[in-house]
Each structure stands twice: as structure tokens, then as C-alpha cells.
Computed example of a mutant assay.
Amino acid sequence: MTGPANDEVTLVIDRSVAVVLFEFLSRNVDDADGETLADFVEDEAEIPALWALLAGLESVLTEPMAEDYERRVIAAREAVIRRFGGAFSGKGDA
């Protein structure tokens, strides 16, 4: 099986995961031009790659333009925690 000719990949993720990722990336990569992640990146190409991921999410999500965006983010976070559990002990509460 060969990949698309344009060298793109298709990623299928849960909508709640996409909303949580969008919110995280827009806060930490877009708003601060990635400076908040400077201590965590190994190579300067990682920030533009995250910008590209953010742009991809933005192109398919309607939630960021919704009037109740903040409520939708909270609901998405809760759904992700329910499905996958929390990453940090005691911090899984929304």
C-alpha cells in the first residue's frame, strides 16, 4: 500500500482529543509563538511542525468559532479524561 502522492498523512482522532489539542496548541504554540515550549523542544523544526498541526486542526474544527467555545473545551477535556484517564495523579478533574 502506498501513501498519498503529495506526501500528506491522514490522522483519525476523536473530536474531543482534537479540541483539547487545538486549545493546548493555540495557547502554547500560536499565542506565544512557541516560546513557552522553548525548554521542551529539541530542534527548531518542532515548533513549525506544531503550527502545521494547529492549522490542520483549525481547518476541520468548528468549535473554535462557537460562542460557547470555553464550555466545549471543558466538555472535551472531561471526555478525554473519561476515555483515557488523567496524566497526573489528582489533576484529572476539569
Rank of each mutant, 00 (worst) to 15 (best):
V29S: 02
G56F: 03
I47F: 00
D30W: 02
R27E: 15
A38S: 15
L50N: 03
E46N: 05
T62D: 15
E46D: 09
A55Q: 11
L54Y: 13
V41M: 08
L57K: 03
E58Y: 13
F40D: 12
G34K: 07
A32D: 14
A38P: 02
L37M: 13
A45G: 08
A52S: 13
R27I: 13
E42A: 12
D43A: 12
A32T: 15
L54A: 10
A52G: 10
L61A: 08
T36R: 13
V60Y: 00
E58V: 03
D33M: 11
E42C: 07
E63K: 05
A52F: 04
D33N: 15
V29N: 02
D30F: 02
E46K: 04
D43S: 11
P48N: 05
L54W: 13
A32N: 13
S26N: 15
L54E: 06
G34T: 08
E58A: 14
L53I: 14
E44Y: 10
A45L: 06
L50C: 05
I47N: 00
E42I: 08
P64K: 01
S26D: 15
S26G: 07
S59E: 12
A32K: 15
V60H: 00
D30T: 08
D43F: 05
P64Y: 00
T36W: 07
E42K: 06
E35V: 06
E35C: 01
A38L: 09
A38N: 11
V60N: 00
D31A: 15
E42L: 10
E42P: 00
G34V: 09
A32F: 14
I47G: 00
